[in-house]
């Protein structure tokens, strides 16, 4: 990539040469205000990065795209920051990556929704202190025309609905990103006795919001958490074709890395964020979140309740 830069320089040189030929003797100079602005910007950036061990050391929260895309974190994170003074950096990735970031100590807290995978990490001892935060549920969304005829059999289970989609070869968009939603979808395909694949099965490899948009544009079915679906509903040509199957429960837990294994994590900050997420204030915020905009709550607070599984 050296070449284009050379050509660039050639262009600039050419212009300079011409302007000098016209009798303009002043050398090209950085305009002072621009330099000042750049310096100020640089200082500002430095100031924004707190040093290691400072009382306001940032807490890194690794979480799933569904909590981010639904807008819940935009409510909870500022609330936490105001109460404790810890700045939070949120990394929204698939559940698989979020758990791995936590286990490697690259995140101080993880908020995820894949109970089976979470238990694996608890088993190895990499993550500790798992606490129930909230739940909502998954729904099967599909095009209004419902080519697989899922609405016509209202008593069906999620697994049987997926079976129908496969049998009719109706398009289905999978997250395909090892997220909690993707893991749930894979479990349902397994229950349906189908190994998904072929022209009708698309893997987006993207977050829930992008995947819903793709499903809508492609007139395809997709498995989505209710929260993100409600948040995106207005922009989508997708309806809920199946809901209410107990197999579609979507449970969120918060966990944090074992500080003995990965000493560089922000232990106090991580614990503070965990405590906050299960505190009455956060739970009350979760309960009312989305009611005003979407007419229904997107998540149901569960702190202190017995484990569902």
């Amino acid at each position: 990539m050296g070449q284009p830069r050379l050509a660039d320089r050639g262009q600039a040189g050419g212009r300079r040469g011409r302007s000098r030929a016209r009798g303009d003797r002043t050398r090209p100079r950085w305009p002072a205000p621009a330099v000042a602005a750049l310096v100020a910007l640089g200082l500002g950036l430095l100031e924004g990065a707190p040093g290691q061990g400072a009382p306001d050391r940032a807490v890194i929260l690794a979480t799933t795209t569904s909590t981010q895309d639904s807008g819940l974190l935009d409510l909870l994170v500022p609330l936490f920051e105001r109460r404790t003074g810890y700045p939070v950096r949120t990394v929204a990735v698939g559940t698989g990556a979020a758990l791995r970031l936590g286990a490697d100590g690259d995140a101080d807290v993880v908020l995820v929704h894949a109970p089976a995978l979470e238990r694996e990490y608890l088993g190895t001892g990499a993550l500790i202190d798992r606490r129930l935060v909230m739940h909502n549920d998954f729904v099967l969304a599909g095009p209004p025309a419902d080519p697989a005829g899922i609405r016509r059999r209202p008593a069906g289970t999620a697994a049987s609905a997926l079976g129908q989609i496969a049998r009719t070869g109706s398009r289905f968009v999978s997250r395909g990103d090892r997220s909690g939603t993707h893991l749930k979808e894979q479990a349902l395909w397994k229950a349906a006795g189908v190994v998904p694949g072929g022209d009708w099965y698309l893997e987006s490899g993207q977050g829930m919001g992008a995947t819903l948009t793709i499903a809508s544009e492609k007139r395809a079915y997709t498995l989505t958490d209710r929260g993100t679906y409600l948040a995106f509903r207005r922009r989508l040509e997708l309806g809920i074709v199946l809901e209410g199957d107990p197999a579609l429960a979507n449970v969120y837990h918060v966990l944090r890395p074992d500080p003995v294994r990965v000493p560089r994590v922000n232990v106090a900050g991580g614990r503070a964020l965990e405590d906050f997420l299960v505190s009455p204030a956060a739970q009350a915020a979760i309960e009312t979140f989305g009611v005003e905009t979407h007419g229904a709550p997107l998540f149901f607070p569960d702190a202190g309740k017995p484990e569902p599984e």
Binding site: V93, G94, G96, A97, R178, G205, Q206
Partner: peptide
Amino acid sequence: TTATVLAASKG
């Protein structure tokens, strides 16, 4: 490029 983003987000 998009496959790289996906692989990284999968961990």
